[in-house]
């Protein structure tokens, strides 16, 4: 029990910070979380470019509130320090709220540098052959998605 208690003390000291800090209007509170990793949590950044179904768009502080659904592609984060962080997202959602908080939630996201160009090309060509051999609507739709992802992967990795 003593061990458990000391554990609990340890964790409460480290305290989960779950509340997103309220940002000033001219500052973006940017959260970027994927199923595999959290990249940003309520951080202030200059600009974020996202690929979405309604076209790619850039998000600056005080962007008009909107919702969007992600398309496979590269999210570019322009950090306050001047760094540009390029992360490939598979899919997910973008939420821009009226308090200038921005959330990108992705199923899977990895830095572009971690993508293997050769494998990406293999995935694309495999998807293309799957499309030609697809026999029903669903298989065709799945192959089309795979091609879309494959193209985005190759484009990002090159």
């Amino acid at each position: 029990m003593a061990a458990v208690r000391s554990l609990s003390k340890f964790f409460s000291l480290r305290s989960f910070s779950t509340t997103t800090k309220r940002a000033y209007a001219d500052q973006m509170s940017f959260t970027f979380a994927a199923g595999n990793q959290v990249y940003y949590e309520a951080k202030s950044v200059k600009q974020v470019d996202v690929p979405s179904f309604s076209g790619s768009f850039g998000i600056l502080p005080a962007h008009v509130p909107t919702l969007a659904v992600l398309k496979p592609g590269v999210v570019s984060v322009y950090e306050d320090s001047g760094n540009v962080n390029k992360i490939f997202v598979s899919s997910g959602t973008v939420t821009i709220n009226d308090d200038s908080s921005v959330q990108i939630l992705a199923e899977e996201a990895h830095p572009v540098a971690n993508i293997d160009v050769g494998t990406a090309r293999d995935i694309l060509s495999k998807a293309q052959s799957e499309l030609s051999s697809a026999t029903n609507d669903q298989a065709r739709a799945e192959a089309e998605i795979a091609i879309e992802v494959g193209e985005a992967l190759v484009k990002a990795a090159e």
Partner: peptide
């Protein structure tokens, strides 16, 4: 589980926020 939960909380909170706002 605790380590993984910490990485997932932003997802849950982010999703909730839209419904609330």
């Amino acid at each position: 589980a605790e380590r993984e939960l910490r990485a997932v909380r932003p997802i849950g909170d982010g999703t909730k926020q839209f419904y609330e706002k």
